[in-house]
């Protein structure tokens, strides 16, 4: 069951293959079913199914629903806002992680181990735990409903530092020796050796961070109290759940909000999957 066809099995290969295709297709339909029903939802007039049960194919197709969702949800604004916050978080995490990882990988200083343990220990403090204290801090700073409030807690991450440190430590010592002989300073070594050698790790890290920032829900939900500061994920809730009778508009908004992620995933599939599985499989 777990591996490919056994040569001495009774059935001819073509029939067994057909069986596999059938099984895999059924499972694909099952996985994609919610997506398909969402698309049908968006395109059908809601009154059609509120009374008669939802059809499997769209009824009374209305493409205008995407325009409506875009305009009514003020999606342009919230997508732009989310894009800005995502960019800030991603760039800041890359910079702070790179610098700290460099120090941990290549420099000698007192209390290094203690500091590293303190760093890793912050994995025990996810935003769900620190939420209400951080909201209080943001409120005291008067940062509710602001870009700095939306991004501040995510400008550094232990995960990023750990990942890049691993990458930096994997740079072969021959390369380090060569760089030293060439008279490279720290900055030149980082720019010309450490980062280029670790391009795959850096790429995966950037993509995973950007995905996480774009998809973030709990923090922006708590750090925003005015509708115009809602990030796209939080705005989806207001657009879709508040008026079930206009749910087609809500799901159209959800589809629009997924487009950037979908594009990113299609273009960078390999890197994203490598980032998602980092730590799951050794090697």
């Amino acid at each position: 069951m777990a591996s490919d066809g056994h040569p001495s099995r009774g059935l001819p290969r073509s029939i067994r293959n057909a069986g596999w295709y059938l099984l895999l297709s059924v499972l694909s339909v099952a996985v994609l079913y919610p997506v398909w029903m969402t698309i049908v939802r968006a395109l059908s007039e809601p009154f059609v199914y509120i009374n008669e049960g939802q059809p499997f194919l769209p009824v009374a197709i209305d493409w205008g629903v995407f325009n409506t969702a875009w305009a009514e949800g003020v999606m342009g604004r919230s997508m732009l806002l989310t894009l800005g916050v995502t960019a800030i978080i991603t760039i800041a995490q890359l910079v702070t992680s790179m610098l700290a990882a460099y120090a941990f990988a290549y420099l000698r200083f007192p209390f290094k181990t203690v500091l590293f343990v303190l760093l890793i220990a912050t994995l025990l403090l996810p935003i769900e735990v620190t939420l209400i204290a951080n909201i209080r801090t943001i409120r005291e700073l008067d940062w509710l409903n602001s870009i700095q409030g939306l991004s501040a807690p995510f400008l550094a991450s232990a995960f990023g530092i750990f990942l890049l440190r691993q990458g930096f430590m994997g740079v072969p010592s021959e390369l380090r020796d060569a760089a030293r002989l060439d008279g490279f300073g720290h900055i030149a070594f980082l720019r010309k050796v450490a980062l280029p050698v670790n391009r795959p790790i850096v790429g995966s890290f950037v993509l995973i961070t950007a995905l996480g920032a774009w998809n973030n829900y709990l923090w922006p939900r708590a750090a925003v109290t005015e509708q115009r500061w809602e990030t796209i994920q939080v705005a989806l809730r207001s657009i879709s759940v508040s008026r079930p009778e206009r749910f087609n508009v809500g799901v159209a908004a959800a589809i629009i909000a997924s487009v950037p992620i979908l594009v990113l995933l299609i273009v960078f599939q390999k890197q994203i999957i490598r980032g998602l599985t980092a730590g799951a499989v050794k090697g």
Binding site: L119, I132, N134, R136, I161
Partner: peptide, 30 residues
């Protein structure tokens, strides 16, 4: 070298301190 090390760590540790450890202290306080 140590000074360089600490200054490279500073940005990350400031963020993690203010939004990781300080909230833990505040939770206990609250």
């Amino acid at each position: 070298e140590a000074l360089l090390g600490y200054s490279l760590l500073a940005p990350a540790f400031i963020v993690l301190g203010v939004f990781g450890y300080y909230p833990l202290y505040r939770l206990v306080h609250f």
